[in-house]
Simulated assay, not measured.
Amino acid sequence: MGKIKVENIKIYAHHGCLREEEIVGSQYLVDVTVNANLQEASNSDDLSDTVDYVHINHIVKEEMKLPSRLLEHVGKRIIDRIFKEISIVGKAEVSVSKINPPIGGDVEKVTVILKEKRNV
């Protein structure tokens, strides 16, 4: 087994429960960690034997474009797509952070972290 991390994917998106958040949008950071059997790729040196992090970045960008009220919802969509589209992934962890959330205080960011195992 091995891990592949794609960290600090910066995206401007329109998520939130407030109407203003849907209209104005805000900055987000997304981190993805996947566990997969990387033994074959380590021997073959072939991209088709591993998890293509370009594919992960593409999934994150597409799912972040679709507005959600909750960060939990967009995080779950990202995990579901990873399992659907990348067959060697056995576990996935996604964190979605909203930078400068409108919560009436001096808060750098709020983060939701989801972890799931592939259903066999």
Rank of each mutant, 00 (worst) to 15 (best):
N37G: 04
S68K: 13
K115P: 10
K61Y: 12
K61P: 04
I103V: 10
L70F: 12
E21A: 00
D45N: 11
I78R: 06
I103P: 03
A92T: 01
E20F: 07
K109E: 12
V51G: 11
F83W: 10
T50G: 03
Y53S: 04
E40Q: 15
V6E: 02
Q27L: 14
I23W: 06
N8L: 09
E20V: 07
A92L: 05
A41P: 05
N119H: 11
N100L: 11
L71I: 12
A36C: 13
K91C: 14
I82R: 03
S42Q: 08
K76G: 12
S87R: 12
E40L: 14
K5R: 13
I99W: 02
R69E: 13
L70P: 09
I56G: 07
V74G: 00
D31T: 09
G75R: 04
L18P: 04
S87D: 10
K5E: 13
E108F: 09
I79F: 01
C17E: 07
A41W: 05
R69I: 09
N43S: 14
V74R: 01
L114Q: 05
I88D: 09
G105V: 00
H73W: 11
S42L: 09
S95I: 04
G75P: 12
A13V: 07
A36S: 10
D31R: 00
Y28L: 06
V30I: 08
L66I: 15
M64C: 04
V74W: 00
G75L: 06
K10Q: 14
E108D: 15
P102F: 09
K65C: 11
K65V: 07
K76D: 10
V54S: 12
V54G: 11
V30S: 00
Q27W: 12
V60Q: 03
H15A: 02
L70Y: 07
E85R: 07
P67C: 07
P101T: 02
S87P: 03
L114R: 06
E63F: 04
K61C: 11
I4E: 05
D80I: 08
E85F: 05
R19P: 15
Q27C: 09
I79D: 00
E116C: 00
A41T: 06
I11T: 01
E85W: 02
S48H: 12
I56L: 15
P102D: 12
K5D: 13
V6F: 05
D45M: 04
E7W: 10
S48V: 15
V60C: 07
V96G: 01
Q39G: 12
S68E: 08
K5N: 14
R69W: 11
V51R: 09
G104M: 05
D52T: 04
H58F: 12
G2M: 00
V74A: 02
V110I: 14
V89P: 05
L114E: 08
N35E: 15
D49M: 07
K91D: 15
E22W: 10
D45I: 02
S97G: 01
V110R: 02
G90H: 14
I9T: 03
L18W: 10
